[in-house]
Design a protein around this nucleic acid. Structure first.
Lengths: 269, 269
DNA sequence: AGATATTTGTTCGTATGTATT
DNA sequence: TAATACATACGAACAAATATC
């Protein structure tokens, strides 16, 4: 309809002095994109146009674009026809950005499993009878990694990670984006926790076979479309995993302390 | 101390050509900060030092700093003693960043309540007997907003938001940062959903008094330290809320459709 | 209170790189 | 191969903010 290409709060110089100019520019560009209902792949105006549009110099505009790029909202290409394009934030980037928030918080195994314990059973329940043959096959493919008894610690460690990959893959099939993301985020967090990496390097008798057994039964329930059973199996699995992990955490911590302070047992308070 | 302040991958020009230079610089600076175990409040080198350090121009360094600032990892101040400082990512920023990920996904009321339904009962259980008098008082303070019958739609809407604030406040008391954040994020999502805003503008008979009743009983259980009761009350509350919201969603959608297609069902009043 | 020094913030001009045609 | 269109990067200058004296 109209070709009015300058709707937003552009040229006003002294609006909210709380943000720096590039940040304001980034917010303005974002609003501009949202107002137009632009979709992933759509091209933003070039730097020159943005400069004219917002009355800012190149450097400022570039910083603003960097801000949006860091948030995963745009990507930029050079060359003719290049420029900034609207981008759907990838799950990996979302996980990384959210991970920054928890970087200074002290997250423990108990915190993570408190959520996994309730979320993954819901996930299993939802997925019952809704998985394609391909998806089932992909899950069984991951399970192959821990069919055999591990010969070395390295293999055992890889199997532990594959076990987590199984859950992450399952979560990626969730019809609920919130649930899927949350489960995968928690699993990612688990993988990064140093205490977990220590635990995963220890032998845990029976852990592999028991876990494999849970997952076989889970797959059967999912195939059969028995949501209640799938949920119950997952719940039991999570409960058992939490128990093992917390036990091992205690062991590892005790070991760590005795390494650091020979003779001392614990810390008061 | 040592004066060799150039440990990271600085001057090598052509290693990972996947990222742009500012992004690489941002990553390098971030690694540099992490390696030194810097804490919130610690000061980064000034722009001039970073330029020398990484052999890049001012603009490039500034773009890198903007990237980190956009992620909430640093904040910058001007003036003497100013510069870039390590910053703990605020919850609000984390919520906004994560919200971007779900912007293009289609999130519905059902998705949100599927999580709230299991998470908030856990929250209630955890908090039983662990709230200070101040925290209880703060909760009761929020409840004051919806003690009276609303005279206008605006007041009713404000009361609905206060009801969500009650849950958000409760979540902020969680000893589990993951659980607290997740609950608050879901509530924030709910507030932003346009369908919810429509629902909140409609009168829902009994919703306020029933909700208030749930929360009074919840507070009692929390005070008494009865985790089981708190969990059960919250579970019932969430279930009821989900039911109402989904019913209203259907009503609003039907109305929306009939508005778009005149000739179908007439509008009463 | 005011001057000054320090540090980031912003702009301009120019040159380089890169991908399309 | 050359021409074009666009982002990318550099360097120098100036402006604004703010702590200290």
């Amino acid at each position: 309809m109209e070709e009015d290409t300058s709707p937003p709060a552009t040229t006003l110089p002294a609006d909210p002095p709380r943000m720096s100019r590039p940040q304001r520019a980034a917010a303005a560009i974002k609003d501009w994109v949202v107002e137009r209902g632009m979709r992933p792949g759509d091209r933003l105006p070039g730097e020159a146009e943005l400069m004219a549009h917002f009355g800012m110099a190149k450097g400022t505009i570039r910083e603003a674009l960097r801000v949006l790029e860091a948030q995963g909202l745009i990507r930029t290409r050079t060359g003719p026809g290049g420029g900034a394009f609207v981008n759907e934030v990838s799950e990996a980037r979302a996980r990384a950005l959210l991970g920054n928030y928890f970087y200074f918080k002290e997250i423990g195994i108990t915190d993570i499993y408190e959520l996994r314990r309730v979320l993954e059973p819901v996930l299993a329940h939802d997925l019952a009878g809704r998985l394609s043959a391909d998806q089932i096959a992909a899950l069984e493919d991951v399970m192959q990694v821990y069919q055999e008894r591990p010969d070395t610690i390295e293999i055992a460690e890889r199997q532990r990670f594959a076990e987590l990959d199984f859950h992450a893959l399952l979560a990626s099939f969730s019809p609920n984006p919130l649930l899927g993301f949350q489960c995968r985020f928690l699993i990612g967090l688990l993988k990064e926790l140093t205490i977990c990496r220590r635990i995963y390097r220890r032998p845990i008798p029976g852990f592999r076979t028991v876990g494999r057994d849970y997952q076989s039964r889970l797959i059967e329930a999912l195939k059969a479309g028995d949501g209640g059973a799938a949920r119950a199996i997952m719940r039991a699995h999570m409960l058992a995993a939490q128990k093992v992990m917390e036990e091992q955490e205690a062991v590892v911590l005790r070991q760590f302390l005795s390494d650091a302070e020979p003779g001392a047992v614990g810390r008061p308070g």
